[in-house]
Design a protein around this nucleic acid. Structure first.
Length: 118
DNA sequence: CGCCTGACTGAGG
DNA sequence: CCCTCAGCCAGGC
């Protein structure tokens, strides 16, 4: 499962999200070359290796719903964990969501393609 | 093959 | 901003 090639593509894309920015499950899936598989993106983030991959961490907490909401139920342990990590990142979590206008990641396609090939 | 379950989405009301 | 619903797709049984 954690050696699923599709998972690895998704994790690599997530590693490109800069600190202080957030992306949606669907956006990550698209960039990983897996359009229409937002749910898969969410699922595999639950299997992120604790020590990251290629020696780098996988910032799973920077991935949210397209609406800006965290995917976990408000108040759950997972929710609180993600919220604090986002705050550490300098991202303000208002209620159950984050402002996409303010923190949304708008990557340069050329850059993404280059980085993913390396 | 059917049926159900998700860290999902977009459109509607 | 809330909720509902149809679509979505991978997995498990």
């Amino acid at each position: 499962m954690s050696n699923n090639p599709q998972y690895e593509k998704i994790w690599k894309v997530v590693q490109l999200i800069p600190q202080g920015k957030v992306a949606s499950y669907g956006q990550v899936a698209d960039l990983a070359g897996l359009p229409g598989r937002a749910r898969l993106a969410g699922k595999c983030l639950g299997y992120v290796p604790k020590d990251g991959i290629n020696g780098k961490p996988v910032p799973w907490f920077r991935v949210l719903r397209s609406s800006g909401q965290l995917a976990f139920p408000l108040g759950s342990d997972s929710f609180e964990r993600q919220r604090s990590l986002l705050m550490d990142d300098g991202i303000f979590v208002k209620g159950k969501s984050v402002s996409i206008k303010q923190y949304g990641w708008k990557p340069d396609l050329g850059e993404i393609l280059f980085l993913l090939d390396n």
